[in-house]
Amino acid sequence: MKERLYVLDWIRVFAIFYIIFVWHIDDYSNNIFSNMVTSTLAYICLYVFVFVSSYLLACNYTISKPKEIIAFIKKRAVRVYPLYLLALIMFLMTSQISLKEFLIGAFLLNMILNTSLLTLWFISMIFIFYLLLSVILYNYSLIRTVYISFAFSLLCYILHKTFGLISPKLVYYYPAFFVGIFCAKRLHIDFKWGKSKIIALLSYSTFCMYLFHRIIYWGLLKIYIPDTNAMIVVYLACAGIPALYFVSTGLQAGYDKIVSFSFRVDQKI
């Protein structure tokens, strides 16, 4: 399936806007939005990201040969890792993470070692799910997926309880990952309605928005710090939305051109 699933664009855009323009802005405004409802909604939005990612990949990929597993992992790494590493470097340069956190994050080990990583922990988690997905999609079957899921969850639990390794987040968000695969392979859900050019443009930039929004906030607060928490929220939202959109779109488009050019060169060679 290569058709664009417009409903998922709407869902993804809503989720990313909530996370970066409500939940994370709250970190800069003395947690004025923090309560059980907003916290629960943040977890739901992150669940949505995991679901959408696994759903789309499970829809668009079938793996029938071992070499296709390597190709799948390579393609996901090219898609995700360079931009993630750039964000990680910028987090370090703006003193939002320590050198130790940077090094652990650069090797995508924070989920394995159960260490903290501001915001970007989610990318490390998603990449582990990509590795798992490559195995699940290999000659896919539901029963085999259930066995793999059980073994993965049990291994995470044992390593966490015995050695303090493995972030519990891997297990917390795994159900969304599993359901995304299940829906893609077993259910025929019509996600193709709701076409919107604006939403499609925003959806295109969501990955970079997530990676770089704290960098934009850092820069804006270096320029000006409002007097009240409420005004900080207004300032970061009003200035941050256009700034983040243009920066994210530019970064994503530029990176896509680099990848496309590199692919053409490889094909010629």
Rank of each mutant, 00 (worst) to 15 (best):
I148D: 01
K195M: 04
V259I: 15
N31S: 11
G194H: 03
L113Q: 09
E68L: 06
V50T: 09
V48I: 14
I16V: 14
Y28L: 11
L99A: 08
I148T: 03
I128W: 12
S134L: 02
R144Q: 12
I198S: 04
L103N: 09
A151V: 13
Y255I: 13
A200H: 11
C156I: 07
L251D: 02
G105I: 09
V7M: 14
L244H: 14
N60S: 15
I216P: 02
Q267Y: 11
M93T: 03
T228C: 03
I104Q: 05
E68G: 03
Y138N: 04
S34W: 09
F102A: 06
N35P: 03
P175Q: 12
L137S: 05
K67A: 05
A239S: 12
F17M: 15
W121C: 00
S64L: 10
S95G: 03
Y6M: 03
K75T: 10
P82G: 01
T228P: 03
F129I: 02
A77S: 07
K197G: 04
F127N: 10
Q267S: 06
Y61C: 03
L236N: 10
S205E: 02
G254S: 00
F177D: 08
L201M: 12
K100Y: 10
N31R: 14
K100V: 13
Y28N: 06
M111F: 07
L201E: 05
A230H: 06
E3H: 11
L103R: 02
L8Y: 05
T249K: 12
I166W: 04
S260F: 13
I73V: 11
K222G: 13
S98R: 04
D227N: 13
D256L: 10
Y172A: 04
I104T: 15
I189N: 11
F21E: 05
V259H: 12
K268W: 05
S64G: 11
M93V: 15
V135N: 07
L108Y: 10
I123K: 04
T119C: 10
I148C: 02
K195H: 08
V7C: 13
I223A: 01
V48F: 09
L159S: 08
V179T: 09
V7F: 14
V37L: 10
F163M: 08
L131Q: 04
L155E: 02
I258S: 14
S153C: 13
F212Y: 09
V48W: 03
D227R: 11
L113R: 08
T115H: 10
F21S: 04
T94Y: 08
I69S: 01
L137G: 00
Y18W: 05
Q252L: 14
I232Q: 01
T145N: 11
K192P: 02
S205V: 13
D256R: 07
A253Q: 12
Y130Q: 05
L170H: 01
Y55G: 06
W121H: 04
G105W: 08
Q267F: 11
I16D: 08
Q267W: 07
Y172E: 06
V135D: 08
R144P: 03
I158T: 12
L132P: 02
R264Q: 15
T162W: 12
A151M: 13
Y28K: 12
S124N: 15
L92T: 05
L244N: 15
Y204K: 12
